[in-house]
Write a protein that binds this DNA or RNA. Sequence first.
DNA 1: TTGTATGCGTTATCAT
DNA 2: ATGATAACGCATACAA
Lengths: 333, 333
Amino acid sequence: MKAKLSDIARLAGVSKSTASRALRNSSLVKDETKKLVLETAKMLNYKPNSLARAMATKRTKIIGFLMYKKNKPYVSHTFFGPILDGAIEEAAKRDYHIIVAATNDMADTFNKHFIQDSIDGALLVSLHPEEVIKEFDRRGIPLVVINNSMKSRNNAFIEDDNYGGACAVMEHLIRDRGHTRIAHITENRDHPSYRVRYKAFLDMHAKYGIPVFDGVVLADSAASFEDGYNAMKDLLLRKTLPTAVFAATDVLAIGAMHAIKDAGLRIPDDIAIAGYDDISAAFMVDPPLTTVRVDREQIGKAAIIELMKQIEDPEKPSRVVTISNELVIRAST
Amino acid sequence: MKAKLSDIARLAGVSKSTASRALRNSSLVKDETKKLVLETAKMLNYKPNSLARAMATKRTKIIGFLMYKKNKPYVSHTFFGPILDGAIEEAAKRDYHIIVAATNDMADTFNKHFIQDSIDGALLVSLHPEEVIKEFDRRGIPLVVINNSMKSRNNAFIEDDNYGGACAVMEHLIRDRGHTRIAHITENRDHPSYRVRYKAFLDMHAKYGIPVFDGVVLADSAASFEDGYNAMKDLLLRKTLPTAVFAATDVLAIGAMHAIKDAGLRIPDDIAIAGYDDISAAFMVDPPLTTVRVDREQIGKAAIIELMKQIEDPEKPSRVVTISNELVIRAST
DNA sequence: TTGTATGCGTTATCAT
DNA sequence: ATGATAACGCATACAA
């Protein structure tokens, strides 16, 4: 039988309240009594029941990791997995647990029974609609929103420096490598991250006084390997070919690499190519891909740190944390 | 203010007990009363408090996804992520939630407060030591163990068909492609999965009457890209070269591919190569890699299904579920 | 410094 | 078919 507080109290000859206080090291308890209670607890291998404690304190020490997504991949998504890893690690340090859930429906999000009333806070990844964020706000649930441009009052926002990363790629292509005809393969530009990368693409042309090459290709919103392949095939039909390609994601870039090779062209001699994300495949392809490393684990850690601040002081104003990126130059450029 | 059961009861003019029963559609409640209660509940947007319910029923509807790992990657591991995805999806169908945790310490595993007493069951992935499994058993916590050869009384075990998958690779190399000098690059063979793949490697030689080529190379237990690269470099120093390589994982295989190319040899003309796992990079490398596709999501789903059976009937005997694999032939062989 | 009594929001037991 | 009350295991306001 599992020992409970009343067992400890009885054996130690004190009241439940005293036992409870002693176990949480309250200064109200005499050292001697404290010691006695602690020893008794250890003897019985006592562990407080977390449900009961949560009931009494209104704190579960659970946080929700919520992905707004209809289909898989959920955590095996190249972006979300490492974020969750960082969050798990950082949360564990504070004795917090993480519940993972995926929904793509607002009502559903809040009907999930444990999210309903049993999380101390939430991490929102992927593009949750604004109403969801508002609803968390309304319910007073501490919230950290990751890579989403929407702001609201009492949340923290974590984002990586998309603009800076994309600028670094462009400056590398233009300044270090001297390219002047640069194509851009991107996903649906409605997504804030891709929109920002695209803006950097344009801005760097302006900064260096280079006319924008007529080679911006939109892949399907899936942004799959095939999308990258097909986009590049299109580009290769142009009268004037680009000398470099900046793809908005590594997957698109790698698809494009295959198209370039299939056309009998060499990378980077004929066409250089750079991606974005530094997925694990990036250094496994041939040639290894120049890309922007986004420290996703750091995003997850920062998110937990900010969430903890919110939980401790819900009145604190909203904060934006930007995680810096790193240009990783490999043989593809 | 959130409505609670007593609010519903008061407004509907019934007792808490009746309200509680009506909400759970008990046959003890008159239809008329039931309707009244339900309407009141809907009006107040009532949602039962899951903590209180869990307290009373001794069921949290939470299951633990436990990884026995000291360091990251946790869920971003190519193997664990998709398993978790499958588990999330399957659990959601049943209104179950998943808490993810990583530990590499037995005491720690059971001290995590929410695992302690607030999960209805657990999924164990990666190599948890036998004592951990025993301890779950002792505590009577329903358990499903994934890809671990250890058996115990009342658990289910899910594993993919490592032996069958590895045999398929070998038969492809031997029978379809006529190779007779096949090297094997593997990880630490103490790991059950790798041991089984190695056994298949040997068995298929026996089956086809081929002497085993002197080219079994053990990578470091990290089984990284570099390990694969270095293992292949070693192989390339031999007097007699293999005509094919079976690597125990795709990552090792891809590392080896780079070594082969660096040596100026062609794949598959000079040396063919096959991997195992079908990681996302497998079809992105050049040439695309022949490998064994392990349906990891299916493993996660099957694990939840088996766990639910255990939760519903803890007396049910242990079961072993084997998920079949698929040989994916690409241009590397 | 310690103890008593009450609350947290349900479900379960036992009456009626 | 319904209601009163206990129980779940802990924390805390109040009393002593």
